[in-house]
Simulated scan of single mutants.
Amino acid sequence: MERKGVVTMQGNPVTLVGPDLKVGDKAPDFTVIDQNMKEVRKSDFANKIKVISVTPSLDTSVCDIQAHKFEEEAVSLPDDVVVLNISMDLPFAIKRFCTTGNIKKVIALSDYRYASFGTNWGVLMKELRLLARAVFIVDKDDTIRYVQIVPEATNHPDYEAALNTLKSLIK
């Protein structure tokens, strides 16, 4: 499935590959790669609230700020909440970014190998093979409770709206 007219990158329209996920949908599976080249699946975070911060590349200023904003929030979250950052960056670049940027609570993951997150979650930009900027929040039952796909990939997400939804799920 391909969707046009949803996202631009620097003003240029791009095609998103995958479904148009909505609040209330079941969270699709994915297989991504961690900083040590190990496969990680959605099921590895079973029974946790999942904040999924999606970035085109951690090597850009907006993505850097986004990762650090969620890192600031993650340090005060309970143990049943996990914050993931998923991009197409190579695991080596992610490891360097997390080390130099002091990212410790956010789990930064790469979709470079299979693009399974991008295609299953509808955020793979076909023309660029990058992920569109987005934020998803998934409850412990794997139901999507928040979806934000940022219309211009170089802009910030609405952090406040995402965090308000997260706070409503934390009991």
Rank of each mutant, 00 (worst) to 15 (best):
D158W: 06
D80M: 08
V106T: 04
L124C: 00
F117P: 05
K95F: 14
T119N: 09
S76M: 12
P56T: 15
D158F: 04
K48C: 07
K48F: 02
A108R: 01
I33T: 14
T55Y: 13
D142E: 01
T100N: 11
I103F: 15
E127R: 10
V106D: 02
P56S: 12
V40C: 09
V81G: 06
E73N: 05
F97Y: 10
F70S: 03
D139H: 06
K48S: 06
N120M: 02
G101V: 07
K140E: 05
K140S: 04
S110E: 07
K105G: 13
W121Y: 13
G101P: 05
V82R: 00
P78I: 00
I52P: 02
T100C: 10
K69V: 14
L84E: 09
K105P: 06
T99W: 08
A108Y: 02
V40A: 12
S43P: 01
Q148N: 11
Q148F: 13
K42T: 03
N102V: 14
F97S: 11
I137L: 02
D64F: 15
L90E: 12
D111Y: 03
V81L: 03
P151T: 15
I52A: 03
L58V: 14
F117A: 09
F70R: 02
W121E: 04
I65W: 13
N36A: 12
P56D: 15
G118F: 00
K95L: 13
I94H: 06
T100I: 11
Y114T: 09
T55N: 11
S57R: 07
G122P: 07
